[in-house]
């Protein structure tokens, strides 16, 4: 193994930290795009090139990944951001330096934990497992610790990237159709979420997910009638 794989994995890990530290949404979206591109390259870097070229299927999957996670999804997110007219994540629940600290600590813990699991078969890197787990943790953390609904979508994408790193790192073969199906689901999800974001910003004049709290069991629905519908 050439060490390129380790560099790619380290890059994916680095993006987690950058995401935790940036408040401008556009730069968050760019970092997610970078992570998507690194993720698409990962299976090609892991391939044993000395033993021949990879299948057509593998190359096709990587190309679709690159197109979708590197270009399409970030583009959709950026469009949603412009339409909803938000630029920054102001006053997150957990501050930026605090966020970095949390992710570094979580990463450290996960690296230590993964050291205790039996080592993976040869082509996989020692880094693959802890990087996958740290990325998943970072994704969940972003969903929880940020206020804007659009940042939650970014967190979901990072979480999904972490799962994909796990799949690639463990050399799991799922077949092209399933791989494309997963990608299509994520694409449609982000598409619908983008439209919803726009509608939320129009309806509520904000996209702060913590203020989406009209529905609650403790509120008796005497006023739960349809007349509270917002007139358009």
């Amino acid at each position: 193994m050439t060490g390129i794989m380790e560099i790619v994995l380290a890059g994916i890990l680095g993006v987690d930290l950058f995401l935790a530290a940036s408040s401008r949404l556009l730069s968050c979206i760019r970092w997610v795009a970078v992570q998507g591109i690194l993720l698409a390259v990962l299976p090609l870097v892991m391939w044993q090139w000395s033993e021949g070229t990879p299948h057509m299927e593998g190359i096709l999957a990587a190309a679709c990944n690159l197109l979708l996670k590197g270009i399409l999804l970030p583009g959709l997110l950026a469009a949603a951001m412009r339409k909803a007219n938000v630029k920054r994540e102001l006053e997150p629940f957990i501050g930026y330096s605090g966020s970095i600290l949390v992710i570094v600590l979580a990463g450290g813990g996960l690296f230590w934990l993964c050291g205790k699991i039996a080592p993976l078969p040869p082509p996989a890197s020692l880094l693959a497992l802890p990087v996958a787990f740290t990325t998943m943790a970072a994704g969940l953390f972003i969903i929880i610790a940020r206020r804007k609904a659009i940042t939650q979508v970014i967190g979901f994408l990072v979480f999904e990237n972490g799962i994909a790193v796990f799949g690639t790192g463990m050399m799991l073969e799922h077949g092209l159709l399933v791989e494309l199906g997963v990608l299509l689901d994520v694409l449609v999800l982000v598409f619908i979420m983008g439209i919803t974001l726009f509608q939320i910003s129009r309806e509520f004049q904000h996209i702060d997910s913590d203020r989406l709290n009209q529905l609650d069991d403790s509120k008796m629905p005497v006023n739960a009638d349809l007349s509270v519908e917002v007139e358009q």
Partner: peptide, 26 residues
Amino acid sequence: HRSSQALEVMWKYLLICSVGIAFALF
């Protein structure tokens, strides 16, 4: 029903179920 409550619910449904289902993928 195009109400603000329905929007709120749809957002919760999409986010909670998608993150949940992502766990199932893992």
